[in-house]
Amino acid sequence: MKRVTTILGISIVLIGSFFLIAADHIDAPAVQGTSSDITDFYAFQGEDTNSIAFVVNTQGLLSPAATGNASFNENTLIEINIDTSGDNVEDLVIQAIPRGDKMYFFGPVAPSATGLNSVIETSGTASSVDITAYGSAAITETNNGMKFFAGPRDDPFFMDFAQYGEIIAGNATSFNDPGSDTFAGTNVLSIVVEVPKSLIGGSGTINVWAESKGKQ
């Protein structure tokens, strides 16, 4: 372990604040602590195996006391990007943006332009769901074979982030066993969409990623 420690120590000097901070929680200074901070992104086969569920979580590390006051931002567009052709350029998007007490969804739809700037693709299939209030049972909607949810949930991410920080800081040489889940007891604001596979390529492998985009 001496060699490991030495190498890690050197790497700290070289890499500076190079830190593993959760899955993507508080990952970058421009979005940290804002409605645009995506904490996690999941994509998995749904309970209906003909569908894929997408989860985009934002605004991490919400304490129970803070969760009731947390809200989605009407100027922040959350966009799920789907590349069906293998070139890492989005062929389809699913967009989510709040208005009032509802989360509106558009797509899956071919975007009018790819890349860093988006408009809301109102020609795509339009859906909406009431945003679930903290403390209320989950409200879900279905439309065109899709399912929708928006609201606070338990943060599904788990990791002993605190001990990783100690290791990187040179204060420890090992994780603990058992470790301690730094994200236990904290919430996120979640958007969950379940989509028939037939609407996003049908078969094979797709490449997906989540983006937050701010109104200019």
């Binding site: 995506i38 997906v208 990623w209």
Partner: peptide
């Protein structure tokens, strides 16, 4: 509702922890 305007990219994520690591 008003859905007009241009929205510019702020955060992005594919695989977990890539940017942070």
């Amino acid at each position: 509702p008003d859905f007009s305007g241009t929205f510019a990219q702020q955060d992005q994520m594919g695989r977990p922890a890539v940017n942070t690591v």
